[in-house]
Amino acid sequence: MTHRPSTEAELAEIIAEAQTPLRITGGGTRPIGSTTAETTLSTAALSGVTLYEPGALTLVAQAGTPLSEIETLLAGEGQRLAFEPMDHRPLLGTKGTPTLGGMVAANVSGPRRISAVGACRDALLGVRFVDGAGQVISNGGRVMKNVTGYDLVKLMAGSYGTLGVLTEVSLKVLPTPETSVTLTAAGLADSTAITALSRALGAPWEVSGAAHLPTAGLTHIRLEGSAASMRYRAERLTGHLADLGAFTANFDTEETATLWADIRDLRPFAQAPGHVWCLSLRPGDAPALVASLPETEALYDWGGGRVWLRDASETMGAAIRDAVARIGGHATRLRGTGDIPAFPPANPVVARLEQGLKSRFDPRGLLNPGLMD
């Protein structure tokens, strides 16, 4: 059974009257993890931009609004969602439509996460959602200075619908840079590449992408900004890294956009079989961790702080999670199934906090039960 409410009031009524758990979905493009709920509640019909003020860099839209609609609207004003949300469809083989609410619920953030713009949650200004008791809750506002009350805005980002069902989101948007350039070096060893990326990120030339693709043997660094400053910044950064590798600059903006969209959407893994894991760890730990798992293939993003790992054998899940946990990182299975949960277990302190929040916002355990356990 599937519920598709078209208004916030209808959604609240469905949750208030629900007697069995609900599987919360948006556009159906990101089926990560599993829940025991058999009844589906989709927010896809809650669609439409309710406010867009280009001069104030502010956009408000309902949770089911397709991201493509939002991106087209922003592009018409020379603006964008700066945190570069990933499109999971190529990797996961899904056919749905990415939505604003699904993006926020999963805190989807791409290669530009390592720059000053931050993650999806850093662009959030306000949210409206319905909790597990059927109550409509509004938090935050439509301007960055609104910091009153509890920061439920940040809490909802990355909660995967387990604390509440988003109905409306307010976001900060940013101007699209005039141009971009990619610096590329070939043949760097993983450890050397991560050293180069870390050095680049620590330099004053505003790197907005830092990735290493071992299978292709390529290391990429992205710069964005005004055309007047681009050549100077690229030359200075190339010289800054000269002792680690011979980086060459590609000033074709369209080619740079295509390259980083492929990295963002994990297209190198899209057609290759096997489970895919998302690892969060210290960049300096990444090369040794990958080397300790020889049956896997890696793609390093965020300067090595995010490692995408493909397990072609589909048998390395326990070894991956144990190896990452030993160095204080986290491993989430993005694609594939197995005996261990997709999401990593929380430590006891965090688990108690999560349970307290769950008891407060979903006391009946209706919303995506078991998804993040």
Rank of each mutant, 00 (worst) to 15 (best):
G141H: 12
G141N: 11
R142S: 05
R142F: 05
R142L: 05
R142E: 02
R142K: 15
N146F: 13
N146M: 12
Y150N: 04
L152M: 13
L155M: 15
A157T: 06
A157V: 10
G158L: 08
S159A: 15
S159N: 10
Y160V: 10
G161Y: 03
G161T: 05
T162P: 02
L163N: 02
L163F: 14
L163D: 02
G164S: 13
V165R: 00
V165I: 08
L166Q: 02
E168R: 09
E168W: 07
V169C: 04
L171G: 01
K172W: 09
T176C: 07
P177C: 08
E178G: 07
E178A: 15
T179D: 07
V181W: 02
T182A: 08
T184C: 12
T184S: 10
A185H: 01
A185Y: 01
A186P: 00
A186V: 10
G187C: 10
D190W: 09
S191Y: 08
T192F: 08
A193M: 05
L197N: 02
S198N: 05
R199D: 00
R199A: 06
R199H: 10
G202Y: 13
P204I: 07
W205G: 02
S208N: 15
S208F: 14
G209I: 08
G209A: 15
A210C: 09
A211K: 03
L213N: 06
L213F: 15
L213C: 10
T215H: 15
L218K: 13
T219W: 07
H220Q: 10
I221T: 01
L223Y: 09
L223E: 02
L223H: 04
E224R: 11
E224C: 09
E224K: 11
A227Y: 12
S229N: 14
S229H: 13
M230S: 01
M230G: 00
R231C: 00
R231Q: 06
R231D: 00
R233L: 05
A234T: 02
A234K: 03
E235H: 13
E235W: 11
E235M: 13
R236G: 00
L237K: 01
T238C: 15
G239F: 14
H240Q: 10
H240N: 13
L241A: 02
L241E: 03
L241P: 00
L241T: 03
A242K: 15
L244V: 06
A246E: 10
A246M: 11
T248H: 07
T248G: 03
